[in-house]
Design a protein around this nucleic acid. Structure first.
Lengths: 339, 339
DNA sequence: GCTAGCTTGTCAACCGGTTGCCACCGGCCT
DNA sequence: AGGCCGGTGGCAACCGGTTGACAAGCTAGC
């Protein structure tokens, strides 16, 4: 019964310590803390007071063992380097925190094999996984999804929950805008062939351009990075395009900077638009026209859906509407200079 | 002895399954997998084969319980929103992966109290913590550091390991550069008062300016964000400054954009420089002069030090040299226009 | 041939919680 | 007053690993 409670680096208190202090059994402590109503109000108060006094924090590992509930989620990314994922990370982190979960971040380094290895390794540590890697074969993912809740971002697989953008809803206004500016030939600077979003965007272009009397064609991008964008300028300039829609802002920015460097007028000679509205898109000169995705929101919703999957009735995929895209017109698109 | 090993969503294999298949006891499996040499080579092979066949992955939670080794590290951030942390995250994630650790990310929302709560909550789940939050009172941190390995980033506390930049080494070239351009009055647009880096930068300016025959003065920034930077323009323009050194790139960019918007010539009327070299700093017009910090590297080194602390002899702080800063001269600084 | 000494594998306890089952308690009904 | 009942709390087993102590098996030495 000495004074100070904590002073030396004593090990964290366990429910046994709490039980001793409250003069009850450990199981009673466990129930008092987790099963509201199971224990008389008076005892519960006593126990909570003891827990408070000892600064008791439950040991998540010890709890996870018998229950299987780890209160931990994983966010699996292909490449932490890409600014696009920042919004996702933020949203997922906040969503997880709000639901009382801890988030772990894993990077698959763009390799399907590393991805599978990673998945297997963290499987035992998490209750569910948000997969934003978009690559890799479908079969293993489907199999994993049967064993453990998974939510896909920017990718669809049958029988697996996923949260995706309303691609045509974002592409249409962009095409309208370009048409209104007077562009008739539009190049699509494409991203990774295996990416769901990439094919969707291309598909939307193919479907939406003809009614507007616009021609579209694909210029394959080598990498979805600034370098990949810059590299593509040569082929763009050889083409009849007066406007380019890039797979993402990173490529768009790379292309734009390269164009500026080569004294090609943007938007006069070449209009450029991207996707995602990453940090930095509004900083370029000219500022980049882009189709903004509410990535932070998407991350949060993915986590919400995952939690629903984990805590809700099994085998029922949450119904999820695609998230809205929003065209942000800045200065990198405009009427082509005549001549 | 049927054919396929895995097909249905069977639960992950345990060492008991492996033991049964290899016809040894579970403890033998444990030793075969962790204690090289403790088990005969032949038995070990047999066990490894069985583990392979069952796709056995050790359950980190179950291991953590008796050993206390969780193989997990936490990276504690004040605000995931800030692009500066991205480098840190990347580096930490890669460092952790390289050392075989999993990384969890926690956000303290800039609040000292939330930070402490967070710390307490995750304490049981991790072997060590990289604290990059920089705020909050010192005493609780010191106390935590006694109980569990902690590495501070951009902050120093006695008896706690920390990894910090060589601030004067970064400020000196910047001042030299401004002096060479012809600036004599330099404003420091300051960051959070509680930030160690902030006071160090100011201190370095105070020490280094006089020998160069330059005057420096502080303009307090409201927030270390783009908005905070933009807001400060008014006070900057009221001051005699011809050059501004901002606490970070975010503020510098905010200031720069606001200046552009108000038709103030940069660098003609006002030279602007920042710190960190975040993604986007080279995208502005004019491109931002900044003092680059190898943040990714710093994150990796912080994790390395943490791992050393965890695995090495206790109570010996790893000797860590400050990381080098590098001046990147771009276009936002230059000679002041005469007149 | 017998024992000392080493190697190898097993037994059982433990980490810190959770939970099914049961015992005990007091109150209420008949 | 006795019996039943609902509410409360304790016992003990269990989750999946780890590890100290020990026994069995083997070799080697005398």
């Amino acid at each position: 019964m000495t004074g100070p409670v904590s002073d030396e680096p004593q090990p964290p208190a366990t429910i046994y310590d709490v039980a001793r202090l409250a003069r009850v059994s450990p199981s009673t402590v466990s129930r008092a803390l987790n099963k509201p109503g199971r224990i008389s109000a008076q005892t519960e108060r006593k126990i909570r007071a003891a827990a408070e006094r000892l600064e008791f924090e439950i040991n998540p590992m010890a709890r996870a063992l018998p229950t299987g509930r780890r209160m931990t989620l994983a966010l699996m990314l292909a490449d932490i380097t890409n600014p696009v994922v920042f919004g996702l990370i933020r949203g997922a982190e906040r969503g997880a925190a709000a639901a009382g979960y801890t988030l772990i971040i894993a990077e698959s380094q763009e390799s399907g094999e590393a991805e599978l290895r990673m998945l297997r390794k963290i499987q035992a540590s998490v209750d569910g996984i948000v997969l934003a890697t978009a690559r890799g074969p479908a079969e293993p993912i489907r199999q994993f999804a049967r064993a453990k809740p998974i939510v896909l971002v920017n990718r669809v697989e049958p029988a697996v929950a996923s949260i995706i953008p309303d691609v045509p809803g974002g592409v249409a206004p962009l095409l309208d805008h370009l048409r209104a500016c007077g562009h008739a030939n539009v190049a699509y600077l494409s991203g990774p062939a295996a990416s769901w979003v990439n094919s969707e965007r291309w598909a939307a272009l193919v479907r939406l351009a003809p009614p507007l009397r616009m021609s579209v064609f694909e210029i394959p991008g080598r990498a979805p990075t600034m370098a990949g964008g810059a590299e593509a300028l040569e082929r763009v300039m050889l083409s009849p395009a007066t406007a380019v829609i890039a797979f993402n802002d990173l490529m768009a920015i790379g292309l734009l900077r390269q164009a500026r460097q080569e004294k090609i007028a943007v938007p006069g000679r070449l209009s450029i638009a991207g996707f995602d509205n990453i940090f930095g898109a509004e900083l370029t000169t000219p500022a980049l026209t882009t189709v903004a995705a509410p990535l932070e929101d998407a991350g949060a919703r993915a986590v919400e859906a995952l939690v629903a999957l984990i805590e809700g009735s099994p085998a029922r995929l949450p119904e999820m509407s695609p998230f809205e895209l929003r065209l942000i017109v800045r200065d990198s698109t405009g009427p082509p200079a005549v001549g």
